[in-house]
Design a binder for these strands. Structure first.
Lengths: 132, 132
DNA sequence: TTACATGCAAAATGTTTGCAAAATC
DNA sequence: GATTTTGCAAACATTTTGCATGTAA
């Protein structure tokens, strides 16, 4: 994990970080691009991608890879898991966590040096349930 | 889940299914394409993608979405989880499973009708550990 | 002033799709 | 013989990259 201090603090970088932090959900790169464009109309998608990478590498945002082809980004960098609505594509945090020693257990089983895990639930969100 | 019986049994379909079943790891679509090409040199990538979709929909193979951009396919359709080597990209099964009532718990927490979950560990595999 | 960051456009990657011909049932 | 499936190529969506220019430190 590189420190952000190694990087320059540009207007674009700040706007992108703020966009993620102000987002209520788990925005994709192009959603962040649209948000950033409101204050920096000439910002490019490439810059958004490059900065999301930098911010993710330096631990300031979290990159989520849920079902589907797009990456999502998360302002919440603490340990937590996610739930994906298979109906509307919504991604939400879920306040459920694995036991802390699970990674140790899996390390023993697999022989890997386990560095992390990703747990995503799928289901139908309350809104979609009620819509039927 | 559609039954495969609704679909015709073509040579391509069989070759693709066999390729997944005979694979030792968790091949990607293009790896399956290369395998299939050994017996059907004129098979197309589109056919591979279409058939993997059919086989996955009918529950005969499992589609895996691990970190990284590509989908992987798994001959093992029973409940199990995966571990990804962040060093070489290898994906392996891991004989660790969540408690069966976790989904019920998460349903209660989130208000979702939970239909599944996906748990993937990341780490460094024994081969990559020893290579240093 | 110089190394890093940007905008732009093109390329790369992985996957899906339209269509006419071929194969299955 | 009707319908599904195929091969091919083009389209698609997302992400990455090369490069000349701009900018923070």
């Amino acid at each position: 994990m590189k420190e952000l201090a190694e990087h320059r603090i540009t207007r674009q970088r700040q706007v992108i970080l703020n966009a993620v932090r102000e987002s209520t959900g788990h925005p994709t790169a192009s959603e962040i691009y649209e948000m950033a464009r409101k204050s920096l109309p000439r910002i490019s998608l490439g810059t958004v991608y490059r900065n999301l990478q930098v911010l993710s590498d330096s631990g300031m945002v979290r990159t989520l890879k849920v079902e589907g082809s797009k990456k999502h980004f998360d302002r919440n960098i603490s340990r937590h898991n996610h739930i994906l609505c298979t109906c509307c594509g919504r991604v939400e945090d879920v306040g459920y966590d694995l036991n802390a020693d699970v990674e140790k257990t899996v390390g023993g089983i697999s022989g890997y040096k386990v560095t992390g895990h990703c747990l995503t639930f799928t289901g139908v969100c309350p809104r979609c349930k009620n819509r039927k």
